[in-house]
């Protein structure tokens, strides 16, 4: 009975199936929102599922000279990384035991797919893939630093390196969202880079890089990459809900569950709106923006928090 219960928790709710469903739902929400922002109708609710089914049933082709083992492993491993991260960020249902330093683990798990994404560009021999991979690595060194610096603002204030610690600190002192609005937006900026969304979609810029590192992927592998990205979006957003909105909801309650989802949806609206109103950055513009403006800003913000 106990094992069955555990299996249910891991595979169905709040584990694998539930997280996947949430990821697909948020992907649909994103597309629908952007469509509505642009005055279009947008896809029907089953579109992400249909896309996934289509990709998984398609023939899987790789160009000659590509290491097939790596090409298969990379999307699987990066999917596994994000999936693991999702277990540390329970969707308002307590699962894994939180421990001191798990926030570092989550950041590590969330940043690994970007690295694997770069590798995906290198193992396939296409020129777009290699260029896209280069770009993703260049980008990696700017947004990742920013993300880490900005998120550490919440760690400084709460004095804890665990997600549970940050949550409980917010329950007593109130959410960090409003007092640390600047830090929140910096974190969002870093997160957009992580997710490679517009306007940070430089590595996979359609108009010059075709699909970046994923150009040569197809079928199941491409489907898995896309699923990873969709999952990463939800995990990244729930990371924000944990660190900046911890005071608004309580773990393990029904009300908390719904508030959590409402916050996720609102954050998705924010991301979609940002995607809709900005043109894609150029790589030099992005690095200049991050290293000359946003990272110093994050440092000053942290310094201010420490002194306070």
């Amino acid at each position: 009975m106990n094992i069955l219960h555990m299996l249910f928790e891991i595979l169905i709710f709040p584990g694998f199936a539930f997280v996947l469903f949430t990821a697909l739902f948020f992907h649909w929400l994103d597309r629908k929102l952007i469509a509505r922002f642009q005055g279009r109708i947008g896809p029907p609710w089953y579109q992400p599922v249909a896309d996934l089914i289509k990709l998984f049933s398609k023939e899987d082709i790789l160009p000659v000279g590509t290491n097939e083992v790596f090409a298969t492993l990379l999307p699987l491993v990066s999917f596994a990384f994000v999936m693991t991260a999702s277990f540390y960020l329970p969707f308002a249902v307590p699962t894994t035991q939180s421990f001191e330093g798990d926030i570092i683990v989550v950041i590590f798990l969330l940043s690994m797919p970007s690295l694997l994404y770069f590798l995906a560009g290198w193992i396939t021999s296409g020129v777009y893939s290699i260029l896209g991979g280069n770009r993703s690595l260049l980008q990696y060194f700017s947004y990742e630093v920013l993300f880490l610096l900005a998120i550490s603002g919440t760690v400084i204030t709460s004095g804890s390196w665990s997600l549970a610690g940050i949550r409980s600190a917010q329950l007593t002192s109130g959410s960090y969202f409003l007092p640390q609005l600047l830090g929140f937006f910096l974190t969002v900026s870093g997160l957009i880079g992580k997710l490679k969304r517009d306007p940070y979609d430089i590595p996979k810029a359609k108009s010059e890089m075709v699909a970046g590192p994923l150009t040569e992927f197809s079928g199941k592998k491409l489907g898995l990459w896309q699923l990873t990205n969709q999952l990463q979006t939800v995990v990244g957003l729930s990371f924000l809900v944990h660190t900046y909105f911890g005071g608004y909801w309580q773990m393990g309650t029904v009300g908390g569950f719904f508030t959590f989802y409402l916050l996720l949806i609102l954050l998705q609206c924010l991301l979609s709106a940002i995607s809709a109103i900005y043109a894609r950055f150029r790589i030099d513009q992005l690095i200049r923006l991050n290293w000359y403006a946003l990272i110093p800003l994050a440092l000053i913000h942290n310094l201010f928090l420490v002194l306070k």
């Binding site: 005055g39 279009r40 109708i41 109103i277």
Partner: peptide, 20 residues
């Protein structure tokens, strides 16, 4: 810096321009 923001909000709350 947010020039298109009012436009997208307006588009969001008005009828879609495309047809099914």
């Amino acid at each position: 810096y947010f020039y298109l923001l009012p436009n997208i909000v307006r588009a969001f709350f008005s009828k879609p321009d495309t047809v099914n």
